[in-house]
Design a protein around this nucleic acid. Sequence first.
DNA 1: ATCTCTGCAAATGTTTTGCATCAGC
DNA 2: GCTGATGCAAAACATTTGCAGAGAT
Lengths: 124, 124
Amino acid sequence: MIRSTSQRRAIRRVFEESGRPLSPLEILEAARDEVPRIGIATVYRTVKGLLEDGWLAAVQVPGEAPRYEIAGKPHHHHFHCRSCGAVFDVQGCSPAIKSLSPRGYQTEGHDLVFFGRCPSCKRR
Amino acid sequence: MIRSTSQRRAIRRVFEESGRPLSPLEILEAARDEVPRIGIATVYRTVKGLLEDGWLAAVQVPGEAPRYEIAGKPHHHHFHCRSCGAVFDVQGCSPAIKSLSPRGYQTEGHDLVFFGRCPSCKRR
DNA sequence: ATCTCTGCAAATGTTTTGCATCAGC
DNA sequence: GCTGATGCAAAACATTTGCAGAGAT
């Protein structure tokens, strides 16, 4: 990740403008608004680089393709809408979670994902 | 899932004898001890059928291939060892988790995965 | 004997890689 | 002008599917 190219600038902008985790395909489509000839391989390569740089963090939701979001946000969790498939951020954590970590293991962290229906799918 | 075949009996036995979630490849290898010519397609087809029957439940750990375990266990969470890659069951839950679910969403459940090092990897 | 299930191989979908060319520095 | 980055296409994986034959009922 040495050079600043139009593709990399476009991908970074996509994340800055989207408030939620994105899949590689979502990134590709959004980036094409700015750089129409960008290829999927560049998206994967750039995401990998941004992960190594610590600029992006992976968001893995059970049963879904991996998504990515800007790193460095305060610790938070995610909500997966099983109706529309989108993933949203959920603020807050509880010390009670840490107390659930199993004895004898060296726990480095946790992932918590809620699932159900998001506000707009709920109404239907 | 109408007929009882040696392949299906073998796959069920593999789950009954393993106390932890298994990936399709782990299932294949263990089942081959009993039915050497079993193919990966049969594993996928059988897992799918057992999921539909409610006999198996999917266990998705961030960044890992899907794993499966016998369904109907009491609600529990998982621990993912980032050193050896194995996944273990973690007993217990806290009502504090439910209180974290976001307002405005219809929450149907949650997945909680701890990660770090398992007891045997911890020592090294 | 029927009809489901299986293994194999091909198809599909996703992510990675090789390589010639392009473009940032 | 170097050399890293890109696009394309092929390769590498994981999972699913088509089909003819095997096996359960």
